[in-house]
Design a protein around this nucleic acid. Structure first.
Lengths: 144, 144
DNA sequence: TAAGTAAGTTTACGTCTGTAATTTAAAAGT
DNA sequence: ACTTTTAAATTACAGACGTAAACTTACTTA
């Protein structure tokens, strides 16, 4: 048995995971219900996604009479951190700060979120550089 | 002619865009060179991606002798903002704050980035709620 | 002018995704 | 026990993606 270094979860699969994460665990019936309402999906669609997530190792299932109850194999926060960090790692690092600011402006943040962020930023400011360089071209690119 | 509300740019296509954004504009030769070095891609791969980006309207080209010079149709910062915001919009909004903090911890931020973020946070703190609620289940879900 | 080279275009091909219908199997009701 | 329901597994299928070879066309160079 091996731990998946990083598993790719597609957009549609995320919706399934979110339901299960929020409820802790769920039967296919519950997930089908929720996504039929939230996304307008047919039962078969949700079943396919549950199957793919099992195959990827993102979910496990315990038999419960006729049906299965599905459990997440990774915590939601960790999955979110990995997804967003790996997106940022593929974009221009020089612009990460501006992008983060646009994000912070867009999302809803609680007082606690803001306090935590502020503390972190104060800490980072102690060693932050004056400028972050662009990493979009190969290191020894003549064209830059 | 119509402006694309939002165009999807794939991971591989992002690499092409980054080169062109960084240089302002570039010939296919330049892009091929850069990505051969940075990504190990064959010329044909980069050519395919340039073609797909033209078709999507992410790039335009001006003929220049035998070759074309490619220009980005959208600014890099805008593309980054859209990409990251639309990712966040598909994840649990209750956890966006923690995720943003993980991101802020991970990326390199300049002094200016930090100052801008801090100013924004101070402003947001004035009206921020005590708690942000989860939006992973349909509004009227009985299971919650 | 013929040959070589480089740019762009077309075709390829397996995998992943979104979206689902169909089939199989098991449980529950009559 | 037979039928109806429902869960799970199998099959489907078009479009996007990563990755590239092959073909075509137009300069450049001998």
């Amino acid at each position: 048995m091996e731990v998946k270094a990083q598993m790719e979860i597609s957009d549609a699969e995320w919706e399934v995971m979110r339901v299960i994460w929020t409820l802790g665990s769920a039967t296919s019936h519950t997930v089908i219900e929720a996504l039929s309402e939230k996304m307008g999906w047919k039962a078969a669609t949700t079943k396919t996604l549950l199957g793919r997530l099992m195959k990827k190792g993102a979910l496990t299932a315990k038999k419960n009479g006729r049906a299965f109850t599905y459990f997440p194999e990774i915590p939601e926060q960790e999955a979110m951190d990995v997804a967003t960090i790996s997106l940022f790692d593929h974009l221009c690092q020089m612009r990460a700060g501006a992008t983060l600011t646009a994000l912070a402006d867009h999302v809803s943040l609680s007082q606690t979120d803001i306090a935590n962020l502020q503390k972190l930023l104060t800490e980072k400011a102690k060693t932050a550089p004056e400028k972050v360089s662009c990493n979009c071209l190969p290191d020894d690119c003549h064209c830059q």
